[in-house]
Design a protein around this nucleic acid. Structure first.
Length: 996
RNA sequence: GCCCGGGUGGCGGAAUGGCAGACGCUCAGGACUUAAAAUCCUGUGACCGUUUUCGGUCGUGCGGGUUCGAGUCCCGCCCCGGGCACCA
């Protein structure tokens, strides 16, 4: 029998699985379902990297294990294929994005298939397929047709809102101008409804990225730059589509509690939603009337409010507005430090607004110094009627709360800093608890007891908050308020490669949903899909597609539009929406489509949804980078679908695990000046940057701390360094510290590992095995080529253990009913049979232990220790002369989820004509708890917690017997001498401790 | 600054409060070989003593505590990674 040669067996088995549909999932009501899901990839032009197969292998192991354990498993894969990178590439190479996308998908699919994942490929989905995005559009229309009822905390159909308006059960909004519903015309009714829909359009400042030619969601902007490409992003007013995710903020927050997700991930979502409890407080404007409303989380400190601050963009300080509060002359007695060398408040405010507008988010963050301008206006503190000055400052953000604050410098660091700069009064209203080490200091931000606060005095901070809210509410000066940081989701993009919105704009300015029968609304085939260079989307150029004739159907206040040929009676001219949806749209619901991917009547058959989604997806694995984007968006969509009765579970993903990043191979970097003289890593600036050196290899550049001289770091051979204490140093010069770490894989570093290369050299099974053997799934870990060789050697040993002894013979033996033993077709001699019996007895208990260990470890996703257990068992097999068939089959059965190709091949070889078509169809082996422990155990004996010796006992010995044996042991007896034993402790099967 | 993770040999890591370092890598020595590779065997936390069998001491970031017993639990620090951050 030839040795282990992965390339000759892997393709073969992939074909057999495919041809026999081994992994197809159909509803089998008798079996419990198990839905195991991967985050589907964005098929980039780069192809797979080793990070993809990490999570995919983990889910594949669980899928294969669960199938064997009697579950009906759904394990699908698909493509998240709309989006910017493909479009950017298409523009650069002047290829249609559809062509680029198709090519990338084909590449990804063949790469994934080469790894041998047990996907049900008949369920493959592709977000750019019109038959898929037809339902993305349809679900968007459900959002468009839903309003959020705050009383019921639930999304309801627009028709129910109309009914409530009609019956007068619900009051119309103020914008309806005191009219009743039937008095409004159709256009007015549509406008009222727009204010309630979960999908709505507004003209508002948005994140515009000139380089990408599109707007971006808040979540896609990091430090004022686009997440994709790192281009600058500006705030600009534009008409945009928004999704009212804020309505679901509380539901999204509450839903997290019951989910089996990591605490850190839940925390990220909680932070993003950003709930804070406080109050809205109304401050009257002095001498002028009107008021300013602020949001505060510390209503208890209202007596300490000594001034107010508005954001520079606040409407009340808009110098062009009618109702602005900025004074035209400095009030009498304005101190010079408030005047900022300006002739009037108007000048000061104008100058400050200009300065603030020119500062980027980044600059604002980096510079924490407090600046501002006095508006010349005063407000009245509603609780003590004090006159307090009103300032503007960019430390107050228009985007949070009301864009205005009451400043309490004694109990807020920022207010304290501003008050110090402007010489404003600071009034302590909270006294710290006695044990608080910060007691004497200001500002005091921690809770304590109210002081200088009239009727609040003596109350704890929590009590004072409550009482203040009551006082405010009684006098109509304010209300309790829960505020969320999360903003509505900006949902439109000015790009070509996305789902078109199924919406029609009428000439009267109202917007109407397209009729369901007209879905999918496909992207027009255009030659020129490039950004227009203006703020108009590329679809603007598809004039024919863009201008249409429609007829309206249904309730005139809430109609649907059908595009008809020109000249159709009743048709009116209209335009299509030209924006497209963002990349996240398709991934918001793909896990639902897998259940019924070819359905042309619904996004998913309700019966199938009920079966597969009961309790949600059972296991979802993917990268942590989607913590607040995809995972929040799809929870939102899911909850809307749930409210509308379209899905049966309130949360989509019951258990979620983030796989850890895989870093490049560990590198040792030694630093030197340009002269070549070594510099210790301890003596250089820890801020590195990288570049490509003259020899084409990547270099690290930094500077020498003492002199500032340029220092160049180059990779050095691990054999030239050694560890001294905490650090690595050069063997040649122990004074020179070397930087030792692993870097994120990147093209520029040249440390990217391509799975194709690993498969070509070691096979898919070794790739899978190593990815799992590296360490815990969720942990960040460095790649190691030597490690891949390690698992490859393990697989070779398994192969040789079963198929080739040292002399090249089959080593697997089986016993016939007549009691005789055979190795293949050869009967064993009497002497050999005796050996076989002994081997079978020797391996019995290790075999049960193996099954037990692997079973439990897969359940807790501890794949690395499962593999260790298999290695140990295989090492035990190597010590035998013969390998009993049962031991071999069980090893292969538990190996199959991890390394399926070799398991299949060996199974076929050793079981000959009895073999079933695939080992994957065999049930998972059972183990006997009693056979998992050895018959005799070595038990360590300690005296006062110190190891003295060990005794050998029968496994099921009673405590008393064991202790007697311990005391009888000569080693122990000698140590004990005649000291009295105070306490005897026996932990069953573990150890003995004698306390003297 | 706030909130999560995490710190165990040369490296990746293992260990329901019960023999720390499983398993793998690396390295060293040996066997096989004309030789090399591959393979197999042995050893591989540090220090000390015998320098061969063997024996001893220390050891899970640091300092304390609980416990018969702590890598594991509690308190206080240090360091690393990640997230959020002028969010009122």
């Amino acid at each position: 029998m030839a040795g282990y040669n992965p390339s000759s067996i892997e393709k073969k088995w992939q074909r057999i699985w495919q041809e026999n549909q081994i992994f197809s999932a159909e509803i089998r009501p008798a079996k419990p379902k198990y839905y195991v899901l991967d985050m589907f990839p964005y098929p980039s032009g780069e192809g797979l990297h080793v990070g993809h197969p990490e999570g995919y292998t983990a889910t594949d192991i669980v899928a294969r294990y669960k199938r064997a354990a009697g579950f009906n498993v759904m394990h699908p894969m698909g493509w998240d294929a709309f989006g910017l990178p493909a479009e950017q590439y298409a523009i650069k190479t002047d290829t249609h994005p559809a062509v680029v996308t198709r090519k990338n998908i084909d590449r990804f699919r063949s790469q994934l298939q080469a790894i041998g994942f047990s996907y049900d490929w008949q369920r493959e989905v592709n977000t750019t397929d019109p038959e898929y995005y037809r339902w993305t559009q349809w679900i968007f229309l459900q959002l468009y047709d839903t309003w959020f009822d705050p009383q019921q905390q639930k999304g309801r159909p627009i028709a129910e809102l109309v009914a409530e308006f009609e019956s007068g059960q619900r009051a119309l909004p103020q914008s309806a101008g005191n009219k009743a519903w039937p008095q409004l015309d159709a256009q007015q009714q549509r406008q009222v409804l727009e204010q309630y829909r979960l999908a709505y359009q507004i003209e508002a400042p948005v994140n515009w990225c000139q380089a990408l030619g599109t707007v971006l969601a808040n979540e896609e902007v990091i430090d004022g730059k686009s997440e994709v490409g790192g281009f600058p992003v500006q705030r600009r007013p534009m008409r945009q589509w928004m999704l009212r995710i804020t309505a679901y903020a509380q539901r999204l927050l509450d839903g997290l509690d019951a989910l089996d997700w990591s605490e850190s991930l839940k925390m990220m979502q909680r932070n993003w939603i950003g709930r804070s409890e406080g109050a809205l407080v109304r401050f009257g404007i002095a001498d002028r009337g009107g008021d300013v409303i602020v949001f505060t989380t510390r209503p208890d400190t209202l007596f300490g409010a000594t001034y107010m601050v508005l954001a520079p963009e606040h409407p009340l300080v808009d110098l062009n507005a009618q109702n602005g509060l900025v004074a035209s002359a400095w009030p009498e007695g304005t101190p010079p430090q408030w005047r900022s060398n300006a002739n009037s408040p108007r000048d000061a405010v104008a100058a400050y607004q200009k300065m603030a507008a020119s500062r980027s988010e980044r600059q604002r963050q980096e510079d924490n110094a407090k600046t501002g301008a006095f508006t010349g206006a005063y407000a009245i503190n509603p609780i003590n009627k004090q006159r307090i000055p009103i300032f503007i400052s960019d430390y107050v953000l228009m985007g949070y709360g009301t864009g205005a604050i009451m400043a309490v410098p004694a109990h807020d660091q920022r207010d304290f800093d501003f008050a110090s700069a402007m010489e404003l009064p600071i009034r302590r209203v909270v006294s710290a608890a006695a044990d608080n080490p910060e007691a004497g200091k200001l500002p005091l931000e921690s809770p304590g007891f109210a002081v200088n606060s009239s009727e609040l005095n003596g109350l704890t901070t929590a009590e004072a908050k409550g009482l203040m809210c009551e006082l405010l509410e009684k006098q109509s000066l304010g209300t309790r308020q829960i505020h969320y940081k999360i903003r509505d989701w900006l949902f439109s993009r000015q790009r070509y490669w996305g789902e078109p919105f199924p919406l029609i704009h009428l000439e009267d300015g109202s917007t109407v949903a397209l009729a369901d029968s007209q879905l999918p609304l496909t992207l027009p085939e255009v030659k020129d899909f490039k950004p227009t260079g203006t703020m108009e989307p590329p679809l603007f150029k598809a004039t024919q597609w863009h201008h249409v004739q429609v007829v309206l159907e249904g309730d005139p206040g809430n109609p649907r539009a059908r595009v008809v040929p020109a000249g159709t009676p009743g048709a009116v001219a209209a335009r299509r929406e030209l924006n497209t949806m963002p990349q996240w749209a398709g991934s918001c619901w793909y896990y639902l489509r897998y259940m019924d991917p070819k359905n042309t009547h619904a996004f998913c058959d309700p019966e199938k949804e009920k079966y597969w989604m009961a309790g949600g997806v059972d296991l979802y694995v993917g990268g942590v980078e989607h913590a607040v984007l995809h995972l929040l968006y799809s929870r939102f969509w899911h909850k809307v679908l749930f409210d509308r009765g379209l899905v049966s579970s309130p949360e989509p993903f019951r258990k979620l695990v983030n796989q850890g990043l895989i870093l490049g191979e560990a590198e040792y970097t030694v630093f030197a000046l340009e002269s070549g003289q070594w510099v210790s890593a301890a003596d250089i600036d820890p801020e590195f940057s990288t570049r490509v050196g003259a020899d084409g290899k990547s270099e690290v550049i930094s500077s020498q701390k003492a002199t500032g001289a340029l220092v160049i770091g180059k990779a050095c051979d691990p054999t030239t360094v050694e560890k001294r204490g905490e650090v690595f140093v050069l063997k040649a010069d122990a004074g020179i510290q070397v930087d030792a770490r692993s870097f994120k894989m990147s093209k520029s570093r040249g440390n990217v590992v391509n799975p194709d290369d690993v498969i070509a050299e070691y096979g898919a099974d070794s790739l899978r095995l190593f990815e799992m053997f590296m360490g815990p799934l969720e942990q960040v870990k460095p790649w190691s080529t030597a490690g891949v060789e390690g698992v490859y050697r393990f697989l070779q040993r398994v192969w040789r253990n079963l198929l080739g002894g040292d002399d090249g013979t089959l080593r697997v033996v089986r016993q016939y009913p007549d009691g005789g033993w055979a190795c293949g077709s050869r009967r064993l001699t009497a002497a050999e049979s005796e050996v076989a019996v002994r081997d079978a007895a020797a391996i019995l208990r290790p075999m049960h232990r193996l099954i037990s260990k692997v079973t439990q470890d897969i359940e807790r996703l501890a794949f690395n220790t499962s593999i260790s257990a298999m290695m140990e068992f295989n090492n035990a097999l190597a010590k035998l002369t013969f390998v009993p068939m049962e031991a071999a089959l069980n090893l292969l059965r538990v190996l199959e989820p991890f390394a399926p190709h070799i398991a299949e091949e060996l199974y076929r070889e050793i079981s000959g004509p009895d073999a079933v078509i695939s080992i994957a169809t065999l049930p998972w082996p059972e183990f006997d708890e009693r056979l998992c422990v050895d018959e005799e155990l070595d038990i360590p004996v300690q005296i006062n917690g110190k190891l003295i010796g060990r005794i050998r006992i029968p496994a099921n010995s009673a405590e008393e017997q064991v202790l007697d044996m311990a005391l009888a042991d000569t080693q122990v007896a000698g140590r004990l001498a005649q000291r009295a034993i105070k306490k005897k402790i026996y932990i069953k099967g573990r150890m003995i401790n004698l306390v003297v």
